[in-house]
Design a protein around this nucleic acid. Structure first.
Length: 987
DNA sequence: GTAGTCGTACTTTTT
DNA sequence: GTACGACTAC
């Protein structure tokens, strides 16, 4: 790689060795597998730039597929920044669905697709299927039918072998399902609609029958590959059919879309179909503190079937994640607010509200959080969940637009027929639809004929209603349609989308309609309409700026140019999960982010809250795959950079006082969490600052501006809300009495107890004997030892990080391969994974892997380089051995294989303790501005909550202001305007 | 037939 | 806190 042209240096700069190798790999197929925070997306984006700039592919010959609109947008931005000249807009980049739609728009007619096809979103599908089920009196649940149909389409056509299985008679209403499927598909065809799955299915059809569509494509890159489903895999291969050059990045641990038919299996399929694939893993985690990673790993490792990867933190230990137990969901929300305030204030606004995310299993959990934030006047935004486009008034206008675009869209027309009120009721509408369908007319033409007197509908329509339909619905829409045709026909000024919407609103007298129907909140809804217009305007501007996203011309095949804005706008609405509602003009004030975990994938925040970590929420009651739920929690946890809080309410909502149980994913590791928020003293804050690479304001200024009566510690809520009556917590025996105790002593094995529980040991002991690390000590304040020890730990962590950084420079040669894993388990991930090869250097302590196979189980199948990769840093392998953890490890329940594999020393993200000699040198050279490590015997009392003296990093110079006396401190939150939620703002 | 009122039963995750 | 169904008044 050393002989690359200088131009490429810029691309490779700032990447680590493994990333560099991934970016510049010459292999046709490249699979980059890496854990969270390892720079996957960045690497993929860099590879795109590399392929264009260094290798020389034309941008328009590169296909990049992502899963979410947000990811696509970000990818485009990143690539654009590096490429310049707007070349990124030529790249065929987008979600699978949007790329498929573009191809279908351009070439669809070659496979008999109506040029003006529309997209049926989920609610359309649901409505159609419900109607079918009702009409034909099918005994299947419409929702289940929809899922079944979708799964069938998503599976793809290649997997014929396995389709034999589930199809058997075991499916109860199979007959009905089949009927429903047929009817549904027929209905979509008649209305020229494609549902989400159809976009992919039809595109596969297109590319198979007309490979020349993609004859220009040189290379295909896929982000978040673990989320591809069968049909997407086919699509990927078809896009790459000419040159078979594919790059994927993914992380099996973050596969959270199984319910949408994502198949982790696709990873093995890829390696099977492209055996020469260059596998690269990225192992350094640049995002999270070591504590956060350690705990996340403990969670994900409970999945014994997973393919394991190394994940090495480069950051300091950081403060331990918190697992907080609250009385109710309301208390939980209030507690979150109090912790946010605490973090912001005690960091002297080094952390602000936009650094905070609250990640939820389900969007519906946001209610309490939203109202607590609202009450506290903290601005926030909700990502995922209720979508802007799903608001009733927006949907209505969208339906109008859809009918303008596609008069044959009966469903949309039926929904708007009586909105605004035109004196037509359900019965009439239903009758008309039936009539239209039975005479194979569209509803639109039926109405048109009726109103023109060409044909009288059998269904009775009152004269009054007829007039209003004719004058208030048919005629205005015809007019608009005519104007569109005229405009596009003679290339005159196209009829502006915004004009169209505004004209529609006027003719319909929509504002009055809103007033009539929603007397309570019509104003808000009208504001939504304005925002909608704004979005449309943005969309148009964006199109004009970046030009049409036409596909590169192909000699052999005629393309249909997409000239009209309307269809593209509608498609954009259906395919965009989020309206890009952000930043119009107004200085973006810092907002707390509330998001579903799904929507948070790929993102990161300094501070992350994961509320509602209880059985039933995570894992969700209705979830079928509990491993996936665990991965979901893992994804949530690994979003955090420096502070991670999990919490759960003991009692679910006020309505029924049912008790919640802590999520099973964390019960066994619950002791590794803090029971309440960390004390944000100087050392802790400094560590946070270091992880975030930010500057921490001086201590005086932080405490100088604390509001009066401010609670410095997380003590507004009882640590155990049930303790009042001496309750048993009911989470098993070791959990019962919760005695806080300081951990001041060194553990016998010489590992210094840096205030953190000895995690591994804890993990082991929770599973067998719980007594082993009870350390008798002063009763009193938990955190005291933590903080002083944190100082030492911090210094050490820096060295460790340094060491890892150093060692990781040669990492690329040592990455382990998944090839063995795949080959040993050719067709399923159900099989146990190959044991992670342990350190192969003799210097590493041998007992750790006494019974591990020396090589990857696939040994014979591995290439030489494969084997070479299996070396592990000796330090990494060494640690757990030195600690003698192996002895206390219980034999793992499932199988010997698991048990022997279990030594996770090798996967551990904990770097080894520094070697003594180096310690001194490094500390002295390194910690100039650091406090000298404190004496191990600092009395605990200095951290007493109410008299909080901060441990004087600087010799006790600063004391916290007494709080009561000081006046005129500006509470920064005063300045923040209360945020009015789009949804509902009353509690 | 339409429109308004009341009571009941749900509320995973996304393209 | 809402969406849908049943019931009742026009």
């Amino acid at each position: 790689m050393s002989s690359r042209p200088p131009l490429s240096n810029a691309i490779l700069n700032g990447l680590n060795d493994a990333q560099r190798r991934a970016v510049s790999s010459d292999a046709a197929t490249v699979a980059i597998l890496a854990g969270p925070g390892s720079g996957k997306t960045h690497t993929l984006a860099s590879r795109v730039v590399w392929l264009v700039d260094a290798v020389g592919y034309r941008p328009e010959d590169v296909v990049v597929a992502t899963f979410t609109v947000k990811a696509a947008r970000e990818m485009k931005e990143r690539i654009g920044r590096a490429l310049g000249n707007g070349r990124e807009s030529k790249i065929i980049l987008g979600t699978f669905h949007s790329i498929a739609r573009r191809y279908l728009a351009a070439y669809g007619r070659h496979i008999g697709l109506n040029q003006k096809f529309g997209i049926a979103d989920e609610s359309d599908s649901r409505a159609i299927i419900t109607r079918i089920c009702k009409r034909l009196q099918l005994t299947v649940d419409p929702a289940a039918a929809r899922v079944w149909i979708s799964k069938r389409k998503a599976k793809g056509t290649e997997t014929s072998a396995k389709s034999a299985r589930p199809e058997a008679a075991e499916t109860p209403g199979l007959q009905d399902l089949e009927t429903c499927y047929r009817e549904y598909q027929g209905h979509l065809d008649r209305s020229s609609l494609l549902d989400y799955d159809d976009l992919l299915v039809r595109c596969v059809d297109l590319l198979r029958r007309f490979p020349s569509c993609v004859a220009n494509v040189q290379t295909v890159l896929i982000d978040e590959y673990q989320d591809t489903n069968g049909i997407q895999y086919e699509l990927m291969k078809l896009f790459a059919q000419r040159h078979q050059r594919i790059t994927i990045v993914g992380d099996p641990d973050q596969s959270i879309y199984g319910w949408r038919s994502a198949e982790i299996r696709n990873l093995w399929r890829l390696l099977r179909d492209f055996p020469a694939t260059d596998e690269i893993s990225l192992e350094e985690n640049y995002r999270s503190s070591q504590s956060i990673l350690d705990l996340s790993l403990l969670v994900i490792q409970q999945d014994t079937k997973r393919y394991q990867k190394a994940l090495k933190p480069i950051h300091d230990k950081g403060s331990r994640p918190v697992l907080r137990k609250l009385k109710s969901a309301t208390a939980e929300a209030d507690w979150i607010v109090s912790e946010i305030k605490r973090a912001v204030l005690l960091s002297g606004s080094m952390l602000n509200h936009s650094d905070v995310a609250v990640l939820l299993r389900s969007a519906s959990l946001s209610r309490h959080i939203e109202s607590a934030l609202g009450r506290a006047g903290i601005a926030y935004r909700m990502v995922g969940g209720f979508k802007f486009y799903e608001r009733a008034e927006i949907k209505t206008i969208l339906d109008y637009l859809r009918v303008i675009h596609q008069p044959q869209n009966n469903d949309a027309l039926a929904r708007i027929m009586n909105v605004p009120r035109r004196g037509i009721g359900e019965v009439t509408i239903k009758g008309l639809i039936e009539e239209a369908e039975s005479s194979s007319l569209s509803l639109w033409s039926l109405l048109l004929k009726h109103c023109r007197g060409d044909r009288t509908a059998k269904t009775k329509i009152t004269k009054h209603a007829e007039q209003r339909i004719s004058g208030g619905l048919l005629r205005p829409l015809e007019t608009i349609r005519k104007r569109i045709d005229e405009a596009s026909g003679c290339s005159g000024t196209p009829f502006g989308l915004v004009d169209m919407i505004e004209q529609l609103l006027t003719t319909l007298n929509f504002q009055k309609h809103l007033q009539d129907v929603y007397p309570e909140d019509h104003e808000q809804r009208w504001v939504n309409m304005q925002e909608f217009i704004q979005l449309a305007a943005d969309f148009v501007r964006e199109i004009e700026r970046s030009g049409d996203d036409a596909l590169p011309a192909i000699a052999e095949l005629q393309q249909t140019k997409e000239v009209e804005v309307l269809p593209r706008f509608l498609a954009n609405v259906s395919l965009a999960s989020d309206a890009q509602t952000e930043d119009y003009g107004q200085e973006s004030k810092p907002l707390v982010t509330i998001s579903t975990i799904h929507a948070a994938k790929g993102l990161e925040w300094p501070v992350v809250f994961v509320p509602a970590v209880y059985n039933g929420s995570i894992p969700h009651m209705r979830a079928e795959d509990s491993d996936e739920e665990r991965r979901l929690l893992y994804v949530a946890m690994t979003r955090a950079q420096s502070l991670l809080y999990l919490s759960y309410p003991v009692y679910s909502s006020s309505t029924n006082s049912e008790r919640n149980e802590l999520s099973p994913f964390v019960t066994s590791v619950s002791k590794s969490f803090l029971k309440k928020g960390p004390c944000f003293d100087r050392p802790v804050m400094k560590e946070i600052a270091r992880i975030l690479r930010r500057k921490l304001p001086p201590e005086e200024s932080i405490f100088g501006s604390l509001p009066a009566m401010f609670n410095v510690e997380d003590n507004l809520f009882p640590v155990d809300p049930e303790e009042l009556g001496h309750n048993l917590t009911g989470h098993g025996p070791d959990d019962a009495p919760r005695v806080k105790r300081p951990k001041l002593q060194r553990l016998p094995n010489g590992q210094d107890d840096s205030g953190e529980l000895p995690w591994r040991k804890d993990y082991a002991t929770t599973m067998e004997q719980s007594s082993s690390f009870t350390v008798a000590s002063l009763p009193g304040f938990v955190s005291a030892g933590t903080h002083q020890a944190a100082l030492t730990a911090a210094a050490e962590a820096v060295q460790r990080a340094e060491k890892i950084k150093r060692s990781s420079n040669r990492r690329s040669a040592e990455q382990r391969s998944i090839l063995g894993f795949v080959k040993a388990n050719p067709r399923s991930i159900e099989a146990l994974p190959t044991p992670m090869p342990a350190a192969s250097r003799p210097s590493a302590n041998p007992h750790s892997r006494g019974n591990l196979p020396a090589q990857n189980a696939s040994g014979s199948l591995c290439t030489e380089t494969d084997l070479a990769r299996h070396k592990i840093e000796p330090e990494l392998a060494g640690r757990s051995l030195r600690d003698g953890k192996m002895k206390t490890r219980p034999s793992y329940p499932s199988s010997e294989q698991t048990a022997t594999r279990k030594p996770y020393a090798v996967f551990s993200s904990s770097p080894p303790p520094p070697e003594p000699a180096e310690t001194d040198i490094e500390t002295s050279s390194k910690s100039e501005e650091n406090e000298p490590p404190p004496e191990p015997t600092r009395p605990a009392t200095c951290l007493h909550a109410t008299t909080c003296n901060f441990p004087k990093g600087l010799g006790g110079k600063f004391r916290r202001p007494p709080g009561l006396g000081r006046s005129s401190m500006a509470p920064i939150d005063k300045l923040r305007k209360p945020f009015k939620p789009l949804t509902i703002n009353k509690s």
